[in-house]
Amino acid sequence: MRNPVGRSISLAIAGLLVATACGGAGGGATTAPTASGGGAAALVAPTKPVEFVISTAPGGGSDIYARKMQAVIDTLKLSPQPVTPVNKDGGSGAVAFQYVYDHKGDASYIMITLNSFFTTLIVQKLPFKGTDFTPIANLALDPFYLWVNEDSPWKTAQDFITAAKADTLVVAGTGSKQEDEALFRRIQTIAGTKPFSYVPQSGGGTVAAALAGHQANVVATVNNPSEGKSLYGGTPRKLRPLCTFEPASPATGPFAGLATCTSQGLAISDYYIMRAIMAAPGLSAGQQAFWVDVFKKVSDSADWKQFVSDNNLNPDFRSGADFQKMVNDYQKLHEDIAKQFNWVQ
């Protein structure tokens, strides 16, 4: 009885889709594929509906990015098969990795990855390695800022460091033994502060809320700009970034001109969350090239560019050897932290 309702909506939507695709998609869809990934291999498209696996719950950080990418793929009709987001959260990504790993050679399984692709694989005992998966591409880098409450007396990273040398500070971040904690442990090592009391939270939003509400004595976080923006923007302002862990200050947007942490004596400028795509192990060069091509087009679309700038991401498309190098560097960096702080059981 209710099906016709759904049917007519999907029809209406299909109409809309065609209209928009014809209207505004020209720029992105016609971009030439770059020579990367499988080199000159012919593109081999998947033959079954595609599962776009997400390692967080709906609404979580990488979930938003994956759904945005999926929306672009859908609108621009970049894949002959429907691409459906599938949430497989659990074990800081381990459940999602296992699921994709189990579909060896199947081009219908791709996943969005972040730094848990390194931390989780290093910290937990899992029967596979990061290199088992077929690398596709990195689309963007999500920077970290050092945040304090608006009423905090600290004005620069140096103030924060001085305080952290005197007392054990309570800080919050997403998850345990993942990127946020990794960054705090690096600060601890580089600046020689007392060990932070790190309170793991379930997501970026709750981390920002903990800081804004003075919850459980939390005095600092390393939220991404998109996570802290809401509580920074309103009146009265609740959060304040001290500095960014990027090599240069952001040039545009609400955080334009924010000092770099390096300039304030906290020399970390090479740490981001990657927003990258990996595929099931053992794809052929042609299958790999297909996905590299799809995500290159996503990355070039006006829609994605707008999204990237709205959320203060750094656009950073890499595939092939370039992507591989980044993966290797991050692997090394996280292995060192894990070793230093006894994360491996």
Binding site: N3, P49, V86
Partner: peptide, 11 residues
Amino acid sequence: YGAFELGFRVS
């Protein structure tokens, strides 16, 4: 099948 696979794309 109609409700899940076609209607809501749940596999």
